[in-house]
Amino acid sequence: MNILFIADPLDRFQIYKDSTYAMMAEAAARGHTLYACEPGHLAWSGGEVEANVRRFTITGDLADKRRSPWFAAEAASPRLLKDFGAVLMRKDPPFDMEYVTATWLLELAERSGARIFNKPQAIRDHSEKLAIGEFPQFVAPTLVTRDAARLRAFHAEHGDIILKPLDGMGGMGVFRVTADGMNLGSIIEMLSHDGSRSVMAQKFLPEIKNGDKRILLIGGQPVPYVLARIPQGSEVRGNLAAGGLGRAQPLTDRDREIAVTLAPVLFERGLLLVGLDAIGDWLTEVNVTSPTCFREIMDQTGFDVAAMFIDALERAAG
């Protein structure tokens, strides 16, 4: 099968920890042919969506996860997306208008017969922060608003809260405000752009000391291990991008309850791969753009997440 990865530039990959690379390596090992492009290489013309793509191969000693270069690529050439066996949208956020435009183009390609994973409409329909609102039974006290007075009242009620933007990633823009309310007004003004943008407030969960857990759902089934991303020092963010320490561990009973409830619903909507975030017993995010943590779980447990993913992709692509 020919597989196109729409992703960040290949020469920026840190392959020792990159989930997209893990997918690529597993697909190549099975004999699939790999192609890559970036969202900016997509174009609609004459009623069809095409992209300037590069066929590439994985090179070097696969045991060396820090090798560079790690691939050899041919010159780019235009190709219709419908001609690929599968197209994987693996571009990292931010989820800005260019990202949205890419999903519109991919949806046009779908109408011509392209097989896109995750489904473009499903990516747009599931805000990674707000999608938790569909499953309130698993959500700690949370408020989304641009109203400063309501945010202040939420703080007064709960005393210790987290504030964050709806379009952040990797822990960017996340603030904790404790009972003294230090800098609450300034944080609200900054995150809400003086009341012009909505902000998410959540009750602070002390269980964060045990990690912000990434629960992976693949093909409607949970991976049996999570990656608990544990804040270091005085940091309140567990994100690996913010310096968190990743520790793989088995699903708890509550993790599994959340996973088996959400997995079939999200899979039915065209989400082949989802990364749920949970702190303690509470669901905090539903990540659908470019979920990660394959490599850490694989290295620490031996469970082959990439193989599970390519199995699911082969079934879905037919």
Rank of each mutant, 00 (worst) to 15 (best):
A140I: 12
I279L: 07
F95I: 14
E314P: 02
V144E: 02
I161D: 03
L42Y: 11
G302Y: 10
T33A: 11
E157Q: 15
E314I: 10
I132D: 04
Q14Y: 06
F5W: 05
I15K: 04
S127N: 15
E157M: 13
A36D: 03
E38W: 03
D167Y: 13
I123G: 02
D125I: 01
P69I: 08
I279W: 04
G133A: 13
G113M: 08
D277L: 09
S198A: 15
E110C: 13
D194M: 13
I188W: 04
I188H: 05
S234G: 11
T284P: 10
L151D: 06
F117Y: 11
R152P: 05
T178V: 13
E26Q: 15
M89I: 00
P39D: 06
W70H: 13
D11Y: 12
A312W: 08
I215W: 09
A201I: 01
A306I: 04
I58M: 10
I161P: 03
A153V: 07
R176W: 12
D11V: 05
K119G: 09
I187K: 07
E50Y: 14
Q232Y: 06
E38C: 14
W70S: 09
A316Q: 13
M1W: 01
S192W: 07
G243F: 03
R229M: 15
R269E: 15
V288A: 01
L80N: 11
L81Q: 02
D125W: 01
L130N: 10
I162H: 03
R229H: 01
G133Y: 09
A248W: 11
V265G: 07
G185Q: 10
V144M: 05
D61I: 07
A263I: 05
E257T: 12
M200A: 06
L88S: 00
F309V: 00
D61K: 08
G195A: 04
Q202K: 07
I161S: 06
Q202Y: 06
P222N: 09
R256E: 13
